[in-house]
Design a protein around this nucleic acid. Structure first.
Lengths: 166, 166
DNA sequence: TATTGTTATACTCTATAACTATA
DNA sequence: TATAGTTATAGAGTATAACAATA
C-alpha cells in the first residue's frame, strides 16, 4: 500500500521516510518505464555504458554498487532484450565489455525522457526547491561517512571490514 | 561497499540516490542501535504502541505499512525480547493489543536517544538546512500521489491500467 | 459472511562459495 | 597466484493462500 498518511510517531523517522520515498518512487518508476519494458536499474546500466567507454561487467557493477553475480543476471536480461552485447576485451580476454546495441541506444534515449518526466512529477510537491533538495540528497550519499567524536566505522575503506552492506 | 562516489550518470538519478541513502542509513542505524539489540523497524513499533493507545497488531501494521503476516513475525521477535506483550482485547477477542512492557519502555527511551543522535550525524552534511530537507522529504511521502495526465495507480487494483509486459 | 491472527508457502532480491578461463 | 565471469545455492524480506477463532 505505502502511504496512509503516517502519524507523528513515524513522520519524523528518517528510516521510514527514506524507505517509503524509495518504494513510492519505485512504483511510479515501474509504471513510467513499463512501456519500454525496462526497469530503473537496467536503465542505469544502459546510461553508464553509454556515458563511459568500454566498461567491463565488473566495472559497471562497481559503479552501480551491485555484486558481480547480480551483474551477470542484469546483463543477461539486457542482452536477452537485445539492448546490449557482451564482447570479449582484446586486451584482457577475461573481461566482458558491455556494448550498447543500436536498439539499446534508442531505448535509452526514450526511456530517459520518460524518467526525467517521472522525476519531475515525483518532485513536484517541492516546487522550486526541488533542485536544491536533490543536491542535498547527493551530499548525503557521497558524504565522507562522518568523522565526529562518537566514532563509528566508515562505510567504505577499513581493512578487514567484511561489510554486509549492499 | 556503498558509495564509491557515483559518476555523473548516476548522481542525478533519484532512484540511485534514494536507494543508497536508504542503504547507508540502514547500515549506520544498525550500528547505532546494536547496543540495544533492536533494529529501526522494531523501534518504530515500540514508538507507535507507546504513542497511541491500545493498538492491535493489524493497526500497527497498517500504520507502519507492512503486511499483517510480517507483523506477526515482528511482534514475535519483540515479545521474545520481553519488550512487548500481546493481550486479547476485551471488546473484540479477535484482536491482539500490543502493550509495552516496562522493559520495553526503557529500551524505547534509550534507543530513541541513540536514533536521534544517529540522525543528527547522518544529516550533518546539510547543515542548518537539515530540518527543511526532512520536511520536504515528508511532503514527498505524503503527497497525494500525483494528479496530472498519466495518473499513477496504487500497487493494488486499477481497471484498464495498460501494463502490457510482465 | 467478514475480520484478526496465524501458518505454510512462494517469490524476489541479493550475497557467498565454488568452478572456468584467462592473466 | 590472482582476477573476470559464471553457476549453484542460500539467506533475507515480504507477499499470497488457507485455516481457526471470533464477530
Amino acid at each position: 500500500m505505502t502511504v496512509p498518511a503516517p502519524p507523528e510517531a513515524l513522520s519524523s523517522r528518517l528510516g521510514y521516510l527514506l524507505k517509503h520515498a524509495y518504494l513510492r518512487l519505485g512504483e511510479e518508476s515501474a509504471e513510467a518505464l513499463a512501456p519500454f519494458e525496462i526497469d530503473g536499474r537496467e536503465l542505469a546500466v544502459l546510461a553508464l555504458v553509454d556515458a563511459h567507454d568500454a566498461l567491463s561487467q565488473l566495472e559497471v557493477a562497481g559503479l552501480l554498487g551491485v555484486d558481480r553475480t547480480t551483474m551477470v543476471a542484469l546483463v543477461d536480461v539486457l542482452e536477452g532484450k537485445g539492448l546490449v552485447e557482451r564482447r570479449r576485451s582484446a586486451q584482457d580476454r577475461r573481461k566482458n565489455i558491455v556494448h550498447l546495441t543500436p536498439s539499446g541506444r534508442t531505448r535509452l534515449q526514450n526511456a530517459e525522457a520518460a524518467r526525467h518526466e517521472l522525476e519531475r512529477r515525483f518532485l513536484a510537491p517541492l516546487g522550486p526547491e526541488a533542485a536544491r533538495w536533490v543536491q542535498a540528497l547527493q551530499s548525503l550519499v557521497t558524504a565522507p561517512a562522518d568523522v565526529s567524536p562518537s566514532s563509528r566505522g566508515s562505510t567504505a575503506a577499513r581493512p578487514g571490514a567484511a561489510r554486509p552492506g549492499r
